[in-house]
């Protein structure tokens, strides 16, 4: 996250930042409190495309224009793996002349990827791994091996990847014993990055 200050005025919100986890990006800041005044915030953006071809064309985010709260989801607009330039404006409702702006850039390939939460259980000779559905951008890599035989590991990107229509992904594997260990990681093709592997879970 590169940050350029232009100038600071009493309207400057503290802690302006983008929290980006698992391809969901939230712009947050500490609200500015001024006695008897209402501070409003607006955000506009440019992608690299606009930067090259439309230098002065900033795209307003209508849902984030003149708002009073101090966070905003920008996931929908950060929809390509290029740099996005964000223009953050805080002004006083009554006196628009007093304002503060702040300019920074962000690329979604810096999102932090958490390892998937999962449970696994046996169903007959069937290992069923239930993973949280982290969204359409995500794939899963699941490693499972017979306890004590760490060397021999079966890797699957989702044999029978099963996407629960609501919120859970099931992975079904044939197994022949009951003592198995499992760990999983998520992978996002759009940014070509994986999370770390989750904690290994073994059946007791």
């Amino acid at each position: 996250l590169g940050i350029l200050f232009f100038f600071v005025f009493f309207l400057a919100p503290q802690n302006i930042s983008i929290l980006s986890t698992n391809m969901k990006h939230i712009l947050t800041w500490s609200p500015v409190i001024i006695q008897g005044e209402t501070v409003r915030y607006s955000v506009e953006f440019q992608g690299e495309y606009e930067r090259f071809f439309f230098f002065f064309f900033w795209i307003p985010i209508s849902e984030c224009s003149l708002i009073f709260f101090s966070f905003f989801f920008i996931t929908e607009d950060i929809s390509a793996t290029v740099f996005f330039f964000l223009f953050f404006l805080a002004d006083l409702g009554a006196r628009r002349s007093d304002f503060f702006f702040f300019f920074f850039f962000f690329n979604r390939n810096t999102t932090s990827l958490t390892s998937p939460i999962f449970f696994f259980f046996f169903f007959g000779y069937h290992l069923l791994v239930e993973l949280e559905d982290m969204g359409p951008a995500f794939q899963f890599r699941v490693l499972y091996w017979k306890k004590g035989q760490e060397r021999r590991v079966s890797v699957t990107l989702g044999f029978w990847v099963i996407r629960e229509v609501s919120s859970v992904v099931h992975l079904f594997f044939f197994v022949f014993f009951f003592e198995y260990c499992v760990k999983a990681q998520s992978y996002v093709e759009a940014i070509n990055r994986s999370s770390s592997f989750s904690q290994t879970q073994c059946c007791l």
Binding site: G47, E48, E50
Partner: peptide, 15 residues
């Protein structure tokens, strides 16, 4: 503005 946002999204993906 909504159409412009979607065009920007497509344009940056194309880039």
């Amino acid at each position: 503005s909504y159409v412009n946002r979607k065009i920007s999204s497509i344009a940056n993906s194309f880039l």
